[in-house]
Amino acid sequence: MFKASQKLAIAALALGALVSAPAAWADEEADLIINGEKMDIRVEAPEGHPLDEILSGWIFRTDETQALETDDFDNPSFIFVEQAQEAWSTVEGEAGKSCESCHGDVAESMKGVRAAMPKYNEQAKDLWSLENYINSCRTERMQAKPWKWAKADMDAMVALIGLQSRGMPMSVKVDGPAAEYFKKGEEIYYTRFGQLELSCANCHEDNYGNMIRADHLSQGQINGFPTYRLKNTKLNSIHARFKGCIRDTRAETFSPGSEEFRALELYVAWRGQGLSIETPSVRQ
C-alpha cells in the first residue's frame, strides 16, 4: 500500500505535477542521513521542557521533500550556499576586506557558530542573531553597507555559516543576561495574536502531527534554517518564517531583526536543544 502510494507520487513527479501530486506522508520512523552522516532528529526532552520529545520538522514532511535534504547535490539550497561562498571571498567596502580577510576558511572559522545562536553579546549589551554578527563585520570591519534581514544576500551567508555547524547539536545559552530575552520569547510564544487569536503553541505544541488543511503541523523547530522552501523556491530565514506565521493569524507582525523576534528565536532555539543543525534544510 505504502509502496504503491510512493510509486504514484513518483509517477506524478515525473509528470511534473508536483503541486497537485497526492502527498505520500513519510515514514515517521525514518532516519535522516545527509551525505552519509546521521542527524539527531528525535531527542528526549529534558525535565521541565514543554514537549515530551523534540522532533525535527523533517519528520513531518513528505517522502519527496525529505529525500531532497539527504544529499547536497539534490538540495536546492546549495545554489545559494555557493553564491555565499563567493561572497565570503569578495572584497567589499572602504576597508578593502572580505569575510575571508579576517576569518580565513569558513569551514574552519565558523564551525559551531550557528549552534549557539542567538547569543548575548557583551559589547553590544544585546541579544544577537547570526545576522547581527554578519552586519557588524560588514559595517565595522569592512566598512561596507549592512545587508537587509531576510533578503537573499543575508540568508545565503547565514546558510553558508550555518552549514559549518551541520550535525552539531542546537545548544543556546539561556541563563545570565540572556534570561530576560528567553522570558520575553516565551511570553511571545504563548501569546494569542491577531484576529484569529492563535499562539505559536496552539499549532506547534498542542497540534503537531495533525493536519491543518494540506499542511502537516510540525513542532516549528528552527534547527534547519535557513530553509529552502519548495513553495517559494528560495532560502527562508527564521525571522521571515516567524513573520509569515504571525501574519497568518491576521495579526500585525513584528519585523525581521526586531528585539521581539530575536527573543522568540532564542526561546524557540531552546525548545529544539539537542537537535542536529540541518542547515540548510528543505521544506514544503
Binding site: 501569546t191 495574536f193 484576529q195 487569536e197 497568518d248 493569524t249 491576521r250 500585525e252 507582525t253
Partner: peptide, 16 residues
C-alpha cells in the same frame, strides 16, 4: 485582540 492585523497583510488593522 492582540495586535490585530489588516486581513492577512501583516500590517496593523485599520478597522476590524
Amino acid at each position: 485582540f492582540t495586535r490585530p492585523g489588516d486581513g492577512y497583510t501583516g500590517k496593523a488593522a485599520k478597522e476590524i
